[in-house]
Design a protein around this nucleic acid. Structure first.
Lengths: 218, 218
DNA sequence: CTAGGCCAAATAATCGATTTTTACTAGAAA
DNA sequence: TTTCTAGTAAAAATCGATTATTTGGCCTAG
Protein backbone atom coordinates (compact mmCIF):
# COMPACT_ATOMS: atom_id res chain seq x y z
CA UNK A 1 0.00 0.00 0.00
CA UNK A 2 3.04 2.21 0.36
CA UNK A 3 3.27 2.56 -3.41
CA UNK A 4 -0.12 4.21 -3.39
CA UNK A 5 1.14 6.91 -1.08
CA UNK A 6 4.28 7.62 -3.04
CA UNK A 7 2.79 8.14 -6.46
CA UNK A 8 0.34 11.01 -6.63
CA UNK A 9 -0.85 13.10 -3.77
CA UNK A 10 -2.44 11.09 -1.00
CA UNK A 11 -6.18 10.90 -0.89
CA UNK A 12 -8.10 11.16 2.36
CA UNK A 13 -8.85 7.46 2.15
CA UNK A 14 -5.15 6.59 1.92
CA UNK A 15 -4.28 8.82 4.84
CA UNK A 16 -6.94 7.28 7.05
CA UNK A 17 -5.82 3.83 5.95
CA UNK A 18 -2.29 4.49 7.17
CA UNK A 19 -3.42 6.09 10.41
CA UNK A 20 -5.80 3.27 11.21
CA UNK A 21 -3.20 0.66 10.32
CA UNK A 22 -0.68 2.23 12.67
CA UNK A 23 -3.22 2.50 15.47
CA UNK A 24 -4.25 -1.12 14.98
CA UNK A 25 -0.63 -2.30 15.13
CA UNK A 26 -0.06 -0.16 18.21
CA UNK A 27 -2.91 -1.96 19.91
CA UNK A 28 -4.82 1.27 20.33
CA UNK A 29 -8.00 -0.68 19.75
CA UNK A 30 -8.81 -3.74 21.83
CA UNK A 31 -8.85 -7.16 20.21
CA UNK A 32 -12.37 -8.03 19.10
CA UNK A 33 -13.56 -4.46 19.55
CA UNK A 34 -16.26 -3.20 17.27
CA UNK A 35 -15.26 -0.13 15.30
CA UNK A 36 -18.22 2.20 15.07
CA UNK A 37 -18.26 4.32 11.95
CA UNK A 38 -19.65 7.38 13.71
CA UNK A 39 -16.99 7.22 16.42
CA UNK A 40 -14.18 6.78 13.91
CA UNK A 41 -15.46 9.76 11.96
CA UNK A 42 -15.11 11.94 15.03
CA UNK A 43 -11.77 10.47 16.08
CA UNK A 44 -10.09 11.02 12.74
CA UNK A 45 -12.20 13.98 11.67
CA UNK A 46 -13.05 12.60 8.26
CA UNK A 47 -16.03 12.03 6.04
CA UNK A 48 -17.95 8.83 5.63
CA UNK A 49 -16.87 7.62 2.21
CA UNK A 50 -13.08 7.75 2.54
CA UNK A 51 -13.35 6.20 5.99
CA UNK A 52 -15.39 3.28 4.72
CA UNK A 53 -12.98 2.78 1.83
CA UNK A 54 -10.06 2.62 4.24
CA UNK A 55 -11.91 0.11 6.41
CA UNK A 56 -12.65 -2.03 3.38
CA UNK A 57 -8.97 -2.07 2.47
CA UNK A 58 -7.94 -3.00 5.98
CA UNK A 59 -10.43 -5.85 6.02
CA UNK A 60 -9.13 -7.19 2.71
CA UNK A 61 -5.60 -6.85 4.06
CA UNK A 62 -6.48 -8.86 7.13
CA UNK A 63 -6.28 -6.34 9.95
CA UNK A 64 -10.06 -6.10 10.33
CA UNK A 65 -12.93 -8.51 10.09
CA UNK A 66 -15.93 -7.38 8.12
CA UNK A 67 -19.36 -8.81 8.75
CA UNK A 68 -22.04 -7.82 6.31
CA UNK A 69 -24.53 -5.38 7.80
CA UNK A 70 -22.63 -5.54 11.07
CA UNK A 71 -19.70 -3.32 10.36
CA UNK A 72 -16.05 -3.85 11.20
CA UNK A 73 -14.30 -5.51 14.12
CA UNK A 74 -10.70 -5.67 15.27
CA UNK A 75 -9.42 -9.22 14.94
CA UNK A 76 -9.06 -11.36 18.04
CA UNK A 77 -5.69 -12.54 19.31
CA UNK A 78 -5.18 -16.25 19.84
CA UNK A 79 -2.24 -18.47 20.61
CA UNK A 80 -3.09 -20.71 17.72
CA UNK A 81 -2.97 -17.86 15.28
CA UNK A 82 0.27 -16.56 16.74
CA UNK A 83 1.76 -20.00 16.26
CA UNK A 84 0.52 -20.03 12.67
CA UNK A 85 1.89 -16.57 11.91
CA UNK A 86 5.20 -17.43 13.56
CA UNK A 87 5.66 -20.60 11.55
CA UNK A 88 4.79 -18.82 8.32
CA UNK A 89 7.22 -16.03 9.12
CA UNK A 90 9.97 -18.54 9.86
CA UNK A 91 9.51 -20.25 6.53
CA UNK A 92 8.92 -17.25 4.31
CA UNK A 93 11.47 -14.91 5.84
CA UNK A 94 13.96 -17.73 6.15
CA UNK A 95 13.61 -18.50 2.47
CA UNK A 96 13.73 -14.81 1.56
CA UNK A 97 16.90 -14.25 3.53
CA UNK A 98 18.61 -17.16 1.80
CA UNK A 99 17.73 -15.63 -1.56
CA UNK A 100 18.73 -12.16 -0.44
CA UNK A 101 22.15 -13.37 0.67
CA UNK A 102 22.55 -14.99 -2.72
CA UNK A 103 21.40 -12.04 -4.83
CA UNK A 104 22.10 -8.97 -2.72
CA UNK A 105 24.67 -6.51 -4.09
CA UNK A 106 26.88 -3.85 -2.47
CA UNK A 107 24.00 -1.43 -2.36
CA UNK A 108 22.13 -3.95 -0.24
CA UNK A 109 25.08 -4.33 2.10
CA UNK A 110 25.19 -0.57 2.69
CA UNK A 111 21.46 -0.30 3.22
CA UNK A 112 21.59 -3.16 5.67
CA UNK A 113 24.45 -1.67 7.65
CA UNK A 114 22.67 1.68 7.70
CA UNK A 115 19.37 0.22 8.86
CA UNK A 116 21.07 -1.74 11.62
CA UNK A 117 23.05 1.29 12.71
CA UNK A 118 19.96 3.45 13.00
CA UNK A 119 18.14 0.72 14.88
CA UNK A 120 20.91 0.09 17.39
CA UNK A 121 21.42 3.82 17.99
CA UNK A 122 17.80 4.17 19.03
CA UNK A 123 18.13 3.96 22.81
CA UNK A 124 15.62 3.51 25.57
CA UNK A 125 14.31 7.08 25.44
CA UNK A 126 13.46 6.86 21.74
CA UNK A 127 9.68 6.87 21.23
CA UNK A 128 8.30 3.37 20.81
CA UNK A 129 6.59 4.19 17.53
CA UNK A 130 9.87 5.36 16.05
CA UNK A 131 11.77 2.30 17.23
CA UNK A 132 9.10 0.06 15.74
CA UNK A 133 9.50 1.83 12.43
CA UNK A 134 13.26 1.36 12.43
CA UNK A 135 12.81 -2.26 13.41
CA UNK A 136 10.42 -2.86 10.51
CA UNK A 137 12.80 -1.14 8.13
CA UNK A 138 15.67 -3.33 9.28
CA UNK A 139 13.80 -6.56 8.73
CA UNK A 140 12.58 -5.28 5.41
CA UNK A 141 16.09 -4.30 4.32
CA UNK A 142 17.31 -7.75 5.26
CA UNK A 143 15.14 -9.61 2.76
CA UNK A 144 14.57 -6.86 0.18
CA UNK A 145 16.70 -8.27 -2.67
CA UNK A 146 15.18 -11.76 -2.50
CA UNK A 147 13.81 -11.25 -6.00
CA UNK A 148 10.19 -12.14 -5.35
CA UNK A 149 7.55 -9.44 -5.16
CA UNK A 150 4.95 -11.80 -3.77
CA UNK A 151 7.25 -13.20 -1.14
CA UNK A 152 7.97 -9.68 0.10
CA UNK A 153 4.30 -8.86 0.07
CA UNK A 154 3.38 -11.84 2.21
CA UNK A 155 6.25 -11.15 4.57
CA UNK A 156 5.09 -7.57 5.15
CA UNK A 157 1.58 -8.74 5.76
CA UNK A 158 2.71 -11.32 8.28
CA UNK A 159 4.93 -8.72 9.92
CA UNK A 160 1.93 -6.50 10.53
CA UNK A 161 0.03 -9.42 11.97
CA UNK A 162 2.92 -10.40 14.18
CA UNK A 163 3.37 -6.86 15.45
CA UNK A 164 -0.13 -6.87 16.91
CA UNK A 165 0.98 -9.71 19.15
CA UNK A 166 4.45 -8.41 19.88
CA UNK A 167 3.27 -5.01 20.98
CA UNK A 168 0.94 -6.29 23.67
CA UNK A 169 3.93 -7.95 25.35
CA UNK A 170 5.88 -6.01 28.00
CA UNK A 171 9.18 -4.67 26.69
CA UNK A 172 11.97 -6.00 28.86
CA UNK A 173 15.34 -4.30 28.57
CA UNK A 174 17.28 -7.52 28.70
CA UNK A 175 15.30 -9.09 25.89
CA UNK A 176 15.83 -6.05 23.73
CA UNK A 177 19.57 -6.34 24.13
CA UNK A 178 19.38 -9.98 23.16
CA UNK A 179 17.35 -9.18 20.05
CA UNK A 180 19.66 -6.31 19.15
CA UNK A 181 22.62 -8.65 19.40
CA UNK A 182 20.86 -11.00 17.00
CA UNK A 183 20.28 -8.14 14.57
CA UNK A 184 24.00 -7.41 14.61
CA UNK A 185 24.86 -11.04 14.11
CA UNK A 186 22.38 -11.28 11.24
CA UNK A 187 24.14 -8.42 9.48
CA UNK A 188 27.51 -10.10 9.99
CA UNK A 189 26.30 -13.40 8.59
CA UNK A 190 24.60 -11.67 5.67
CA UNK A 191 27.75 -9.76 4.74
CA UNK A 192 29.78 -12.95 5.11
CA UNK A 193 27.28 -14.52 2.67
CA UNK A 194 26.63 -17.35 5.05
CA UNK A 195 23.10 -18.12 3.88
CA UNK A 196 22.61 -21.28 5.96
CA UNK A 197 23.60 -19.81 9.31
CA UNK A 198 21.86 -16.53 8.57
CA UNK A 199 18.60 -18.33 7.90
CA UNK A 200 18.93 -20.43 11.02
CA UNK A 201 19.57 -17.36 13.15
CA UNK A 202 16.64 -15.45 11.65
CA UNK A 203 14.36 -18.37 12.44
CA UNK A 204 15.62 -18.40 16.03
CA UNK A 205 15.12 -14.66 16.18
CA UNK A 206 11.50 -14.98 15.12
CA UNK A 207 10.87 -17.83 17.52
CA UNK A 208 12.33 -15.87 20.43
CA UNK A 209 10.10 -12.88 19.72
CA UNK A 210 7.13 -15.15 19.40
CA UNK A 211 7.71 -16.91 22.71
CA UNK A 212 7.76 -13.62 24.55
CA UNK A 213 4.57 -12.47 22.87
CA UNK A 214 2.87 -15.75 23.57
CA UNK A 215 3.24 -15.37 27.32
CA UNK A 216 1.08 -12.26 27.37
CA UNK A 217 -1.50 -13.63 24.98
CA UNK A 218 -4.82 -14.58 26.58
CA UNK B 1 -13.80 -13.12 1.35
CA UNK B 2 -16.14 -16.06 1.06
CA UNK B 3 -16.81 -16.00 4.77
CA UNK B 4 -18.24 -12.55 4.37
CA UNK B 5 -20.82 -13.85 1.96
CA UNK B 6 -21.84 -16.77 4.09
CA UNK B 7 -22.52 -15.00 7.33
CA UNK B 8 -25.25 -12.41 7.07
CA UNK B 9 -27.07 -11.39 3.94
CA UNK B 10 -24.75 -10.15 1.25
CA UNK B 11 -24.36 -6.43 0.85
CA UNK B 12 -24.26 -4.80 -2.54
CA UNK B 13 -20.55 -4.17 -2.07
CA UNK B 14 -19.89 -7.87 -1.45
CA UNK B 15 -21.89 -8.91 -4.48
CA UNK B 16 -20.06 -6.51 -6.77
CA UNK B 17 -16.77 -7.66 -5.27
CA UNK B 18 -17.48 -11.25 -6.25
CA UNK B 19 -18.76 -10.33 -9.70
CA UNK B 20 -15.78 -8.14 -10.45
CA UNK B 21 -13.36 -10.72 -9.12
CA UNK B 22 -14.85 -13.38 -11.39
CA UNK B 23 -14.77 -11.10 -14.39
CA UNK B 24 -11.17 -10.16 -13.69
CA UNK B 25 -10.13 -13.81 -13.44
CA UNK B 26 -12.04 -14.57 -16.63
CA UNK B 27 -9.96 -11.95 -18.38
CA UNK B 28 -13.07 -9.97 -19.26
CA UNK B 29 -11.04 -6.82 -18.78
CA UNK B 30 -7.79 -6.31 -20.65
CA UNK B 31 -4.53 -6.25 -18.74
CA UNK B 32 -3.58 -2.70 -17.86
CA UNK B 33 -7.05 -1.42 -18.71
CA UNK B 34 -8.40 1.50 -16.78
CA UNK B 35 -11.65 0.79 -15.01
CA UNK B 36 -13.87 3.83 -15.20
CA UNK B 37 -16.25 4.22 -12.30
CA UNK B 38 -19.08 5.55 -14.44
CA UNK B 39 -18.80 2.68 -16.89
CA UNK B 40 -18.70 0.06 -14.15
CA UNK B 41 -21.78 1.61 -12.58
CA UNK B 42 -23.69 1.07 -15.78
CA UNK B 43 -22.29 -2.38 -16.40
CA UNK B 44 -23.18 -3.76 -13.00
CA UNK B 45 -26.14 -1.44 -12.36
CA UNK B 46 -25.00 -0.35 -8.93
CA UNK B 47 -24.49 2.80 -6.93
CA UNK B 48 -21.26 4.63 -6.43
CA UNK B 49 -20.37 3.82 -2.82
CA UNK B 50 -20.65 0.02 -2.84
CA UNK B 51 -18.81 -0.07 -6.15
CA UNK B 52 -15.92 1.97 -4.81
CA UNK B 53 -15.77 -0.19 -1.71
CA UNK B 54 -15.53 -3.32 -3.83
CA UNK B 55 -12.77 -1.76 -5.92
CA UNK B 56 -10.85 -0.82 -2.79
CA UNK B 57 -11.06 -4.41 -1.56
CA UNK B 58 -9.88 -5.78 -4.89
CA UNK B 59 -6.93 -3.40 -4.89
CA UNK B 60 -5.93 -4.46 -1.38
CA UNK B 61 -6.30 -8.08 -2.46
CA UNK B 62 -4.00 -7.54 -5.42
CA UNK B 63 -6.30 -7.88 -8.41
CA UNK B 64 -6.33 -4.16 -9.12
CA UNK B 65 -3.83 -1.38 -8.91
CA UNK B 66 -4.99 1.83 -7.30
CA UNK B 67 -3.35 5.14 -8.08
CA UNK B 68 -4.43 8.04 -5.95
CA UNK B 69 -6.65 10.49 -7.82
CA UNK B 70 -6.28 8.34 -10.90
CA UNK B 71 -8.68 5.54 -10.18
CA UNK B 72 -8.25 1.83 -10.69
CA UNK B 73 -6.42 -0.24 -13.30
CA UNK B 74 -6.34 -3.92 -14.12
CA UNK B 75 -2.87 -5.30 -13.38
CA UNK B 76 -0.51 -6.00 -16.25
CA UNK B 77 0.61 -9.51 -17.14
CA UNK B 78 4.32 -10.20 -17.30
CA UNK B 79 6.46 -13.28 -17.63
CA UNK B 80 8.49 -12.25 -14.63
CA UNK B 81 5.45 -12.06 -12.44
CA UNK B 82 4.12 -15.36 -13.73
CA UNK B 83 7.46 -16.94 -12.84
CA UNK B 84 7.24 -15.39 -9.38
CA UNK B 85 3.68 -16.56 -8.80
CA UNK B 86 4.52 -20.03 -10.09
CA UNK B 87 7.50 -20.44 -7.81
CA UNK B 88 5.49 -19.23 -4.81
CA UNK B 89 2.67 -21.62 -5.64
CA UNK B 90 5.12 -24.51 -5.93
CA UNK B 91 6.57 -23.84 -2.53
CA UNK B 92 3.42 -22.94 -0.62
CA UNK B 93 1.09 -25.52 -2.14
CA UNK B 94 3.81 -28.13 -1.99
CA UNK B 95 4.30 -27.50 1.69
CA UNK B 96 0.55 -27.40 2.30
CA UNK B 97 -0.01 -30.72 0.56
CA UNK B 98 2.68 -32.37 2.66
CA UNK B 99 0.93 -31.15 5.79
CA UNK B 100 -2.49 -32.10 4.47
CA UNK B 101 -1.34 -35.64 3.74
CA UNK B 102 -0.03 -35.82 7.28
CA UNK B 103 -3.08 -34.39 9.03
CA UNK B 104 -6.00 -35.15 6.72
CA UNK B 105 -8.67 -37.49 8.10
CA UNK B 106 -11.30 -39.73 6.46
CA UNK B 107 -13.56 -36.75 5.88
CA UNK B 108 -10.80 -35.19 3.83
CA UNK B 109 -10.37 -38.33 1.79
CA UNK B 110 -14.07 -38.36 0.89
CA UNK B 111 -14.11 -34.67 0.05
CA UNK B 112 -11.09 -35.13 -2.13
CA UNK B 113 -12.54 -38.08 -3.99
CA UNK B 114 -15.79 -36.19 -4.48
CA UNK B 115 -14.08 -33.06 -5.77
CA UNK B 116 -11.99 -35.06 -8.19
CA UNK B 117 -15.00 -37.02 -9.37
CA UNK B 118 -16.99 -33.88 -10.12
CA UNK B 119 -14.03 -32.34 -11.91
CA UNK B 120 -13.31 -35.34 -14.10
CA UNK B 121 -17.00 -35.76 -14.97
CA UNK B 122 -17.10 -32.25 -16.35
CA UNK B 123 -16.59 -32.90 -20.03
CA UNK B 124 -15.80 -30.64 -22.96
CA UNK B 125 -19.31 -29.20 -23.26
CA UNK B 126 -19.35 -28.05 -19.64
CA UNK B 127 -19.24 -24.25 -19.45
CA UNK B 128 -15.74 -22.97 -18.84
CA UNK B 129 -16.74 -20.95 -15.79
CA UNK B 130 -18.19 -24.04 -14.16
CA UNK B 131 -15.13 -26.15 -14.89
CA UNK B 132 -12.90 -23.45 -13.45
CA UNK B 133 -14.94 -23.48 -10.27
CA UNK B 134 -14.65 -27.26 -9.93
CA UNK B 135 -10.95 -27.01 -10.62
CA UNK B 136 -10.47 -24.41 -7.89
CA UNK B 137 -12.50 -26.51 -5.48
CA UNK B 138 -10.36 -29.55 -6.19
CA UNK B 139 -7.09 -27.77 -5.54
CA UNK B 140 -8.59 -26.22 -2.44
CA UNK B 141 -9.81 -29.57 -1.15
CA UNK B 142 -6.36 -31.00 -1.69
CA UNK B 143 -4.61 -28.71 0.77
CA UNK B 144 -7.53 -27.81 3.05
CA UNK B 145 -6.45 -29.74 6.18
CA UNK B 146 -2.88 -28.38 6.17
CA UNK B 147 -3.63 -26.70 9.49
CA UNK B 148 -2.52 -23.18 8.63
CA UNK B 149 -5.08 -20.47 7.99
CA UNK B 150 -2.49 -18.10 6.61
CA UNK B 151 -0.99 -20.65 4.30
CA UNK B 152 -4.41 -21.34 2.83
CA UNK B 153 -5.08 -17.66 2.49
CA UNK B 154 -1.90 -17.04 0.54
CA UNK B 155 -2.52 -20.08 -1.63
CA UNK B 156 -5.98 -18.84 -2.61
CA UNK B 157 -4.60 -15.44 -3.39
CA UNK B 158 -1.88 -16.88 -5.59
CA UNK B 159 -4.42 -19.13 -7.26
CA UNK B 160 -6.45 -16.12 -8.30
CA UNK B 161 -3.35 -14.45 -9.63
CA UNK B 162 -2.32 -17.57 -11.51
CA UNK B 163 -5.77 -17.97 -13.04
CA UNK B 164 -5.46 -14.62 -14.76
CA UNK B 165 -2.51 -16.03 -16.66
CA UNK B 166 -3.90 -19.50 -17.20
CA UNK B 167 -7.15 -18.28 -18.70
CA UNK B 168 -5.54 -16.25 -21.44
CA UNK B 169 -3.88 -19.43 -22.73
CA UNK B 170 -5.68 -21.53 -25.37
CA UNK B 171 -7.27 -24.64 -23.88
CA UNK B 172 -5.90 -27.64 -25.71
CA UNK B 173 -7.79 -30.92 -25.30
CA UNK B 174 -4.63 -32.97 -24.99
CA UNK B 175 -3.23 -30.82 -22.23
CA UNK B 176 -6.46 -31.06 -20.31
CA UNK B 177 -6.30 -34.83 -20.37
CA UNK B 178 -2.76 -34.69 -19.10
CA UNK B 179 -3.71 -32.38 -16.24
CA UNK B 180 -6.77 -34.48 -15.41
CA UNK B 181 -4.54 -37.54 -15.21
CA UNK B 182 -2.31 -35.68 -12.76
CA UNK B 183 -5.33 -34.78 -10.66
CA UNK B 184 -6.24 -38.45 -10.45
CA UNK B 185 -2.69 -39.40 -9.58
CA UNK B 186 -2.57 -36.71 -6.91
CA UNK B 187 -5.64 -38.20 -5.26
CA UNK B 188 -4.09 -41.65 -5.36
CA UNK B 189 -0.85 -40.46 -3.78
CA UNK B 190 -2.74 -38.46 -1.16
CA UNK B 191 -4.89 -41.43 -0.14
CA UNK B 192 -1.75 -43.60 -0.07
CA UNK B 193 -0.29 -40.96 2.27
CA UNK B 194 2.78 -40.63 0.11
CA UNK B 195 3.62 -37.05 1.04
CA UNK B 196 6.93 -36.87 -0.79
CA UNK B 197 5.71 -38.06 -4.16
CA UNK B 198 2.46 -36.15 -3.85
CA UNK B 199 4.34 -32.93 -3.29
CA UNK B 200 6.67 -33.61 -6.19
CA UNK B 201 3.77 -34.29 -8.51
CA UNK B 202 1.88 -31.19 -7.42
CA UNK B 203 4.94 -29.10 -8.14
CA UNK B 204 5.23 -30.66 -11.59
CA UNK B 205 1.52 -30.02 -12.12
CA UNK B 206 1.92 -26.34 -11.33
CA UNK B 207 4.98 -26.05 -13.53
CA UNK B 208 3.21 -27.65 -16.46
CA UNK B 209 0.27 -25.26 -16.21
CA UNK B 210 2.63 -22.37 -15.92
CA UNK B 211 4.64 -23.30 -19.01
CA UNK B 212 1.50 -23.38 -21.12
CA UNK B 213 0.37 -20.02 -19.81
CA UNK B 214 3.79 -18.52 -20.37
CA UNK B 215 3.70 -19.20 -24.10
CA UNK B 216 0.71 -16.92 -24.59
CA UNK B 217 2.01 -14.20 -22.33
CA UNK B 218 3.31 -11.12 -24.12
C1' DC C 1 -41.60 -16.50 35.33
C1' DT C 2 -40.01 -17.43 30.69
C1' DA C 3 -40.23 -17.32 25.56
C1' DG C 4 -41.30 -15.03 21.72
C1' DG C 5 -42.51 -11.13 19.09
C1' DC C 6 -42.84 -6.15 18.34
C1' DC C 7 -41.29 -1.50 18.42
C1' DA C 8 -37.84 2.22 18.83
C1' DA C 9 -33.20 3.62 18.80
C1' DA C 10 -28.73 2.85 16.93
C1' DT C 11 -25.89 1.61 13.33
C1' DA C 12 -24.51 0.18 8.74
C1' DA C 13 -25.13 0.66 3.85
C1' DT C 14 -26.45 3.14 -0.10
C1' DC C 15 -27.65 7.08 -2.98
C1' DG C 16 -27.26 11.48 -5.52
C1' DA C 17 -25.08 15.88 -5.54
C1' DT C 18 -20.88 18.56 -5.07
C1' DT C 19 -16.01 19.39 -4.97
C1' DT C 20 -11.44 18.44 -6.43
C1' DT C 21 -8.16 16.71 -9.51
C1' DT C 22 -6.57 15.06 -13.80
C1' DA C 23 -6.64 14.62 -18.92
C1' DC C 24 -7.35 16.65 -23.18
C1' DT C 25 -7.48 20.28 -26.69
C1' DA C 26 -6.82 24.41 -28.97
C1' DG C 27 -4.39 28.49 -29.53
C1' DA C 28 -0.36 31.53 -28.95
C1' DA C 29 4.54 32.30 -28.71
C1' DA C 30 9.17 30.80 -29.85
C1' DT D 1 6.88 22.98 -36.53
C1' DT D 2 7.32 22.56 -31.68
C1' DT D 3 6.42 23.78 -27.02
C1' DC D 4 4.04 26.02 -23.52
C1' DT D 5 -0.25 27.55 -21.47
C1' DA D 6 -5.07 28.43 -20.64
C1' DG D 7 -9.44 26.65 -20.82
C1' DT D 8 -12.63 22.88 -20.91
C1' DA D 9 -14.27 18.33 -20.45
C1' DA D 10 -13.97 14.12 -17.94
C1' DA D 11 -13.17 11.51 -14.12
C1' DA D 12 -12.16 10.57 -9.25
C1' DA D 13 -12.96 11.66 -4.54
C1' DT D 14 -15.71 13.44 -0.99
C1' DC D 15 -19.80 15.02 1.38
C1' DG D 16 -24.44 15.04 3.54
C1' DA D 17 -28.83 12.97 3.35
C1' DT D 18 -31.59 8.85 2.97
C1' DT D 19 -32.62 3.99 3.29
C1' DA D 20 -32.14 -0.59 5.18
C1' DT D 21 -30.74 -3.57 8.80
C1' DT D 22 -29.65 -4.86 13.36
C1' DT D 23 -29.84 -4.44 18.37
C1' DG D 24 -31.93 -4.29 22.70
C1' DG D 25 -35.64 -3.26 25.64
C1' DC D 26 -40.43 -3.95 26.63
C1' DC D 27 -44.65 -6.07 26.50
C1' DT D 28 -47.73 -9.87 26.00
C1' DA D 29 -49.02 -14.70 25.79
C1' DG D 30 -48.31 -19.12 27.48
Amino acid sequence: MNEVLKQGSATTASRIYEMLRQDLLDGRYAAGERLTIALLRETYQVGLSPLREALNRLAAYGLLRQENQRGFRVLELSRDELADITEMRRQLEGKALELAVKHGDEEWESQLLAANHRLSKACSHTPVVEWEQLHSRFHNALVAPCGSVWLLRFISQLHDQFDRYRRVAPRAQELRHQLDAQHQELVDLALARNARRARELLEEHITLSSEVAQKSCR
